[in-house]
Nucleic acid binder design. Structure first.
Length: 63
DNA sequence: TTTCTTACA
DNA sequence: TGTAAGCA
């Protein structure tokens, strides 16, 4: 799937998805035209990042 | 239309 | 993180 789909599927902004790649949290493949292609594994990893952030911010606020 | 990269009040 | 610009 392309970035637009992943964004809708996870609720994470396109901007953030690209940032996660920069941080090496996901490794999407590239099409001939340069478009990023995400696998189900990438979907799970993006979701995992959300879970971590939720935990991180809550801990930050209530500790 | 959608995505890509780069840059910025 | 969002948005704008100029391409493909």
């Amino acid at each position: 799937m392309k970035i637009g789909e992943l964004s809708l599927k996870t609720g994470v902004s396109i901007r953030s998805i690209r940032y996660y790649e920069e941080k090496k949290l996901i490794y999407p493949k590239r099409l001939e035209n340069g478009y990023r292609v995400y696998s189900e594994e990438d979907v799970e990893r993006v979701k995992a990042v959300q879970l971590f952030l939720e935990y991180f911010y809550k801990k930050l606020i209530f500790s």
